[in-house]
């Protein structure tokens, strides 16, 4: 794995607690620009919390997180800078139900980037085409299927032209027949050179696009390996046990 001098994500000795519960323990991770990382692990292992720390939806308690040269601290201005560079896709889509698909996509362009409405709509339509859903632009989220909503959510994040995309179990809330369409969009995106961190249970997707697999359990990173090694020759007993459960 090529590790260039300046990783775009740098996490050093990071810890986090929920009240007394030690949810992330001594996390160390460097991610290079353009790298695609899939994080797997049993539920409650801290995978989601880890990527939520990267755009500070959760605040870490100890250690350092540096995103593209900006260290995440209490400083609100820096948090906003980081959030402008990091897109996030959620398990439950979290589209804004009172706005049309197009308005969902142009909102941040207009209000955060200060773009004019016409230009924002043009940009948004471009990304809606990229996720193959431009014909739904004037509908409201409630009128779309889960798979369509998740693709809109991806387009909404991409509109801000982020350097990093975080995916928090993007297909877990979907009916089985809709998972494919979302994974296809994510695979396209991976091909375009986007830096991606995906928490997912879709091991086929992981095998296909991941540069590195990360396995987490009980708040710790247990194993980091390229997918071929990870799936065929896992080193840790916990990884082996996990893989045997999900692949069977």
């Amino acid at each position: 794995m090529p590790q260039s001098a300046d990783p775009i994500i740098q996490i050093e000795n990071m810890h986090k607690w929920f009240e007394d519960f030690h949810v992330l323990r001594d996390i160390n991770l460097n991610v290079t620009e353009g790298e695609r990382i899939v994080i797997a692990g049993p539920s409650g292992s801290g995978k989601s919390t880890l990527i939520r720390c990267i755009n500070r939806l959760e605040a870490h308690d100890q250690g350092r997180i540096v995103i593209d040269g900006i260290e995440l601290t209490e400083n609100l201005k820096r948090i906003d800078e980081v959030r402008r560079e990091v897109g996030m896709v959620f398990q439950d889509f979290n589209l804004f139900p009172h706005m049309s698909v197009l308005e969902n996509c142009t909102l941040a362009l207009i209000h955060v980037r200060g773009m004019a409405q016409a230009e924002a709509e043009e940009t948004a339509m471009g990304y809606l085409e990229r996720v193959r859903i431009p014909e739904q632009a004037d509908k409201f989220p409630g009128q779309l299927s889960g798979g369509q909503q998740q693709r809109v959510a991806i387009a909404r994040s991409l509109c801000m032209n982020p350097k990093i995309m975080l995916f928090d179990e993007p297909t877990s809330a979907l009916d089985p027949e809709m998972i494919r369409e979302v994974l296809d969009v994510m695979t396209d995106l991976a091909g375009s050179g986007m830096t991606m961190l995906c928490v997912t249970h879709e091991m086929g997707f992981a095998r296909e696009v991941a540069d590195r697999m990360i396995f987490m359990d009980e708040g710790e990173i247990i194993e980091i390996a390229p997918p071929e090694t990870f799936f065929t020759n896992p080193q840790s007993e916990r990884t082996k046990a996990f893989l045997s459960q999900i692949i069977g």
């Binding site: 939806l57 955060v112 994040s157």
Partner: peptide, 15 residues
């Protein structure tokens, strides 16, 4: 209003 709405808004960089 579900917490996901706050999170999505924050993740997009809204103040």
């Amino acid at each position: 209003v579900p917490s996901g709405q706050y999170e999505a808004a924050k993740a997009l960089g809204l103040s």
